[in-house]
Design a protein around this nucleic acid. Structure first.
Lengths: 217, 217
DNA sequence: GTCTATACACTGATAGAC
DNA sequence: GTCTATCAGTGTATAGAC
């Protein structure tokens, strides 16, 4: 029966068009902010007529919601590397690396996220209150256990996490300022390596990871 | 002659109204972004008719420019404390304290600044290329001299500055997220003190400031 | 599923009386 | 210097032909 074939083909068209629109939307929302972004501009970037956007996403707000939720998924993905390690040097080092890599590869997403949180998280507040709070409290316990095991200094885990988030995301959210301070050039591969190493070294040394662990970075 | 009195009185009225409008504008731009902010909303917050805004500031963009430039001045003011000190512990400690205090007292300004830079600095780009570049290069030389004097480790001064900027401004730009993770409460006085101490300790220890200096924090 | 034309609301900015 | 009324332009969203 053709009724079994047709829906699958349509589903594929829908999937591809939604991805094209979402990619364009993320870029435009990041560059112009929610209020500054227009459906017309997103449509132009996506290479589609404006009306098609409303066919796939009923409203501008619904499109924005989907963009923000996709970014939250990327964030959770990076958070996973935290757990596949035994001590602070390995776990936090891998976590910083993962977040720096996201800042490098996915700066638009980070900017949309930052803008959403700066504007009091109108869309993502429920996720902050549930998933983020739970994740953070779990990680705080892990860090506390490292402190008790003598693997690191007795620093406040909460402010350590904030510092990691702030610093790694800074390379995405403020990439324009960083480029301006780098002779208007994007960071080269070597400069990114240097950035990662510098960030990891200062933070890990700052929380009391011994020099023998730091030399492995 | 009354022509000597009247202009002075008018100047005072102008000064006060401009300040009222600028304060309201900073708040609204921070909460809604440039595109999301409306002259009507700024007028409502300022308690003035919308037309009066256009009497004092010809366009929305001109008003926004003034807000951003005022924030840049606050930023430069905090930067000054960097220089009234001899070594890394004292200078960077005072700088971090000053920036944390700005994040606490002036979060709206920090958010407008972050938003401006995230959107590729359409208004403030010339300041970034001149004042910020010069200031940063000067401070990098100072930090290098500390390294050569053996007062701290041989860290990359640029990434150290980025970490300080990122972390201190995070407490303003992401204050909503921080509040959400603090049982929906603003940080108390004690919590702010703890935040400052944690940030200073991790960063200063991370760059090799000796324990004898750290205990003074 | 695609696209043109259009309805309707809102915003920045101004004119002109006070 | 203040404020009401209003204009011109733009934005989201939709109707309806294909």
């Amino acid at each position: 029966m053709s009724s079994n074939i047709r829906p699958l083909k349509k589903q594929k068209i829908r999937q591809e068009n939604e991805k094209t629109i979402l990619d364009a939307a993320e870029k435009v929302f990041a560059e112009a902010g929610y209020g500054g972004a227009t459906m017309q501009l997103i449509a132009d970037v996506a290479g589609l007529p404006k009306a098609n956007l409303h066919y796939y996403f009923p409203t501008k707000e619904a499109l924005y919601r989907q963009v923000v939720q996709n970014i939250f998924d990327v964030w959770l993905q990076a958070a996973a590397v935290f757990d596949n390690a035994t001590g602070p040097a390995e776990a936090l080092g891998a976590y910083i690396d993962a977040k720096m890599e996201i800042s490098r590869r996915h700066p638009a997403g980070s900017k949309v996220w930052a803008s959403e949180v700066m504007h009091r998280a109108p869309v993502i507040q429920d996720y902050l209150e549930t998933t983020l709070v739970d994740w953070t409290n779990d990680r705080i316990k892990v860090i506390q256990s490292w402190v008790e095991a003598g693997l690191m200094d007795a620093v406040d885990p909460r402010h350590l996490l904030y510092m990691i988030w702030a610093t790694t995301q800074h390379y995405a959210d403020f990439n324009h300022q960083i480029e301006t301070l780098n002779d208007a050039q994007p960071l080269s591969d070597a400069q990114w390596q240097n950035a990662k190493r510098s960030v990891k070294r200062i933070i890990l040394k700052g929380i009391g990871v011994p020099e023998s662990e730091l030399s492995k970075l």
